[in-house]
């Protein structure tokens, strides 16, 4: 088997890496934005309990506790904590085998399972970045717009959005680059991505160079990404906040 064939095979299997990368971005970014709204939710349905006049002590503490309960915030925050606090590799395995073990029946496709795990995992990381970007927005900007008679929509699209994007680009860029390399974790449930493919040459043909050469794929992908991110940062460099 000549080298060209091996390289062609490797490149074919890298389609899985690319697919995971792009699907995670396409679905993970919007989902991350939604999750960030969840963690920022101030909805406290029992806040009226805080108004009740009670004597200091156990009763008061309970009222306070329930009154401050923010269901949407609490649930999303715990969810984000669990997802960010456990390894992505484990999540991939759980999504693939979990449903079958719990409910029985047919397992999800291997690639689908990997995609679900990646999207959820990265959405949680993205959500924290969105939250940072939104919460670091100084109120003065919004108020300056309000005083000039702008609507909430105008303020968001004409003032806040671009400033948020500028804040978000560098940390998002880091996530994107991590994601490129993380895509190879999908092999844990036997997705034939580029590294898994190369490993097969190690075991079946005792060839090590295909495995080493996958580094080139990741380096090129990250290189292109870095260039694109630099362009974005340059484009937003004309103003400072």
């Amino acid at each position: 088997m000549n080298a060209m064939v091996i390289i062609k095979r490797l490149l074919e299997s890298s389609v899985i890496n690319l697919e995971i990368f792009f699907v995670t971005l396409a679905l993970g970014l919007p989902l991350g934005l939604i999750i960030s709204f969840g963690t920022m939710s101030k909805w406290a349905p029992f806040s009226f309990l805080l108004q009740i006049k009670a004597e200091d002590g156990f009763m008061k503490k309970i009222l306070c506790f329930i009154g401050k309960f923010r269901p949407i915030h609490d649930i999303t925050a715990i969810f984000v904590w669990i997802i960010r606090g456990t390894p992505l590799m484990l999540q991939v395995i759980i999504v693939y085998y979990g449903p079958g073990l719990i409910w029985g029946g047919e397992a999800m496709g291997r690639l689908e399972a990997a995609l679900v795990a990646f999207v959820i995992n990265y959405a949680c990381y993205f959500s924290e970045i969105f939250r940072g970007g939104i919460q670091s927005m100084p109120v003065g900007q919004k108020e300056a717009g309000e005083v000039l008679g702008m609507t909430k929509t105008q303020i968001f699209f004409k003032i806040t959005l671009l400033q948020m994007v500028k804040r978000i680009v560098p940390p998002m860029g880091n996530e994107f680059i991590t994601l490129v390399k993380d895509t190879s974790l999908a092999r844990i449930i036997a997705n034939k991505e580029i590294i898994m493919m190369a490993q097969e040459y190690v075991s079946s043909k005792a060839l090590i160079w295909p495995l080493f050469s996958t580094a080139v794929f990741f380096l090129v992908a990250c290189g292109i990404l870095t260039i694109l991110l630099n362009v974005a940062e340059k484009k937003l460099d004309y103003f400072r906040m």
Partner: peptide, 25 residues
């Protein structure tokens, strides 16, 4: 209504201590 308030607040202008200019413009 929001619209009411927007119209009424235009009777006043406000210059902030910290300027609050829009940096991207």
């Amino acid at each position: 209504s929001d619209k009411d308030i927007r119209k009424k607040r235009l009777k006043f202008g406000l210059v902030f201590q910290s300027f609050n200019l829009f940096p991207q413009y």
